[in-house]
């Protein structure tokens, strides 16, 4: 469960990124975060990942106030939150397999477990054939699948996707969203920020809409609501 309580973030240059944000996301939900650029979507995701600390307010992940985490504890929070970025952030000098295995090496998983787990996740994202390719040999959609595989290989309870389809064509975007939806059906909470109106409108999932740092709408079976 994720809970934002009266969260505001003011950056050093006095720009107010978000102000008095309140929402709760239950386990297993699929939530779209929508709004114009600069509305505060990225800030909310950064706050959730503890990349930023709110100026006021509390953020709870599984009942723990993450604004009070010590520096040492942050990695363990992040192991429980998989992240997918618009620009994939794959390591160019590692193969698809190695990119995914890397996430397990970092948490000091047993090599035996890594050898079993990575092929499983590869087959889940439909990339078993490309295990030994390097990222630049893959299409954008395939690269994003690798990055999703890396995000879920640790079996985090939350998956955060920051405009995951931003660099992809509509057809590929749909495949990625279907994959995220599939992961969500297996029990992972998914939070996705996006500008893709079509996707949001047809998925009929919960939508949290932001404008100028405020929540202007929070609907259970929502639509994008802006002119795309």
């Amino acid at each position: 469960m994720i809970k934002f309580v009266g969260v505001s973030k003011k950056y050093k240059n006095d720009i107010i990124a978000v102000s008095n944000i309140n929402f709760t996301i239950d386990n297993g939900e699929f939530v779209f975060l929508v709004g114009p650029s600069g509305a505060g979507k990225s800030t909310i995701l950064k706050l959730l990942l503890r990349e930023e600390i709110p100026t006021t307010g509390s953020i709870f992940v599984d009942k723990k106030d993450i604004t009070k985490l010590k520096r040492k504890e942050v990695p363990y929070l992040r192991r429980n939150i998989g992240v997918v970025f618009q620009d994939f952030k794959l390591l160019p000098n590692k193969t698809v397999y190695e990119n995914i295995a890397f996430a397990l090496q970092i948490v000091e998983a047993e090599p035996k477990y890594i050898r079993r787990r990575v092929p499983m996740v590869l087959s889940l994202v439909g990339l078993s054939e490309r295990a030994n390719s390097y990222p630049q040999q893959l299409s954008g959609g395939e690269q994003q699948r690798v990055s999703i595989a890396r995000a879920i290989v640790n079996e985090p309870s939350i998956l955060v996707a920051d405009e995951p389809t931003g660099n992809l064509d509509p057809d590929t975007s749909w495949e990625i969203v279907k994959l995220l939806s599939e992961i969500n059906k297996r029990g992972t909470t998914v939070i996705m920020s996006t500008h893709a109106k079509d996707i949001v409108d047809s998925m009929k999932k919960r939508v949290i809409a932001l404008e100028k740092g405020n929540i202007v709408r929070d609907e259970m079976r929502g639509v994008y609501g802006y002119e795309a």
Binding site: R78, R79, K89, L91, I106, V107
Partner: peptide, 16 residues
Amino acid sequence: RREINIMKYIGATDWF
């Protein structure tokens, strides 16, 4: 630095 940045995101400890 890119690699370090990614490592931080996927939960690597500072010492790692």
